[in-house]
Design a protein around this nucleic acid. Structure first.
Lengths: 146, 146
DNA sequence: ATGAGTGCAAATAGTTTGCAAGCTG
DNA sequence: CAGCTTGCAAACTATTTGCACTCAT
């Protein structure tokens, strides 16, 4: 299992505080929802789960950005260009296997980041980040379809 | 160098025909631009290079979709959610190292697709695709900035 | 001639920005 | 109290859809 599961709510709040972010009711709620979720969420799913009104999507986005800067959250790009959000273990990140049909998301235990970062550094790049996501159709969905 | 460079225009046109796509002036032009480009292009860049009017972006998108279905083109997701498009070697695909500042794009010679696909298959997934892109700041840009 | 492809307009989805008012430290 | 945060409206970007017209086969 990934280590984010062992990160305490208090650790996260502490981290946010260290980054100069104030602890508001909204933020606390968003962090809670993210922690409780067993899968990455879209901005709007997150808004709903947090019980925010539909106009508050803005707040969600602003906080997601803040969380990302604080290093507690990562974005997962989907094939259609939209994104999902997931807590990470303070600066760490994960890769996923995502079903195109039911959107089930499994975390992949591989991380090729090191090889890649090394390669990129060799080529003179700095501030390296990478995106690695695998899309497919899971067993249930392919059975269901035919 | 990657093998797409060795794919002939005629091969591509042939492939499109096989897929039931008609060969129109627009399509021919788009394929030419894609072939001549030494880097992945956005939909709008492609439109401009092809000399289409600004309302014809639609045509570009529709053809990009057709090309992708025909297996001659891949999409590259950017960090901001938009995408770039690039010809592939008939069904093959590539990964990139993309500079966040100047958007220079280098093709990575690594392809971890096999390991990943294998893993995904083991987990019961089918129709597997993956996205692997590395973002960073290239030497020139980091020197220029500071 | 038949249906794929195109052009134009308009709609959508996702995300970002501006600004006044509210809340945290 | 100062300034980070929020809420609401509105703008934006990238992309998609509807429909009548045109062109490739």
């Amino acid at each position: 299992m990934a280590s984010a599961d062992t990160t305490e709510l208090s650790d996260i709040l502490e981290r946010l505080k260290q980054c100069g972010l104030r602890m508001t009711r909204n933020r606390q709620k968003l962090v809670e929802v993210l922690m409780e979720s067993d899968r990455p969420l879209s901005a709007d799913e997150l808004r709903q789960e947090a019980g925010f009104s539909s106009t508050d999507l803005v707040t969600v986005y602003r906080n997601l950005e803040a969380f990302q800067s604080a290093g507690i959250l990562q974005r997962i790009p989907l094939e259609n260009g939209s994104q999902l959000f997931e807590l990470t273990d303070l600066g760490d990140h994960y890769h996923h296997l995502i079903c195109r049909e039911c959107h089930k998301t499994e975390r992949l235990e591989v991380c090729l980041g090191e090889q890649l970062s090394e390669k990129a550094k060799t080529l003179g790049y700095s501030k390296i980040a990478h995106v690695l996501e695998v899309y497919g159709i899971c067993r249930q969905c392919s059975t269901a379809t035919g």
